[in-house]
């Protein structure tokens, strides 16, 4: 599903964020990406949805080669990838329903399709009863669930979550994790960058640790730190 072959990224200002990473993530996997701030984790994640372009190396997602991809093809890559952020990135003037529908409108889906599909995903994130609410009327956890609904509404093959629990309290974080696990069970590949030690250690998944722009550990059921 996701393949990186000796990928390097040096920013124009000389910062070497990623220094030779190779990974393979299978379809349907759930992967944590951990690492301290500035370790290159963000760049690693951003290259997956082509927010950043690698300086060197090969990246392919679901058969698309990102290194040689033309600019105008990027929108079609993004339709196969859902992205969730720490700060939700909802549009404040739109209702929950409209925020989720937005992702389908911009790829020109029909009204009937949108209505049906949006209610389906709101059901998955358990917000069907709050479809008419505005984002500021919701709790942080609920807002993140709206963002997740928006990310999966177009049936992406991969869901990328960049510290999705970073702004949430522990209980709410667990709520989000259960939803992500449920989405993963339906077959969506999930890559999640996180700093949350509790979650990583108790909900064991494949773990990729990044340090100094390189992969320092890649374990099948890893823990946040080296097990002593």
């Amino acid at each position: 599903m996701i393949q990186m072959q000796d990928v390097w990224k040096t920013y124009p200002n000389g910062v070497m964020a990623v220094n030779g990473i190779s990974i393979y993530i299978k379809k349907g996997e759930f992967v944590y990406v951990v690492g301290s701030s500035g370790a290159g984790k963000s760049t690693f994640i951003k290259m997956m949805y082509r927010e950043e372009k690698p300086t060197r190396g090969e990246i392919s997602i679901d058969g698309d080669n990102l290194a040689t991809m033309k600019e105008k093809h990027i929108p079609f890559l993004r339709r196969k990838i859902g992205v969730v952020f720490q700060d939700f990135k909802l549009l404040p003037s739109l209702s929950v329903f409209e925020n989720v529908a937005f992702a389908m409108e911009v790829i020109e889906e029909s009204k009937a399709n949108i209505r049906r599909r949006v209610m389906d995903v709101l059901d998955i994130v358990r917000l069907k009863n709050k479809a008419r609410f505005l984002p500021h009327e919701l709790s942080g956890g609920e807002q993140q669930r709206v963002a997740i609904a928006r990310a999966i509404v177009n049936n992406p093959a991969v869901l990328i979550a960049d510290e999705p629990t970073g702004n949430l309290d522990p209980d709410t974080s667990w709520e989000i994790m259960h939803i992500l696990e449920e989405i993963n069970d339906r077959g969506t590949t999930i890559v999640m960058a996180t700093h949350n030690r509790d979650i990583v250690d108790s909900m064991r998944k494949r773990l990729i640790a990044i340090e100094g722009g390189r992969i320092s550990r890649d374990e099948v059921r890893g823990t946040y730190s080296y097990e002593s």
Binding site: K89, A103, R150
Partner: peptide
């Protein structure tokens, strides 16, 4: 700006 950012993330084309 946020709106455009989100549009790009969910795969809106530039002309859209």
């Amino acid at each position: 700006k946020t709106e455009i950012q989100i549009m790009k993330l969910v795969g809106a084309t530039n002309s859209f």
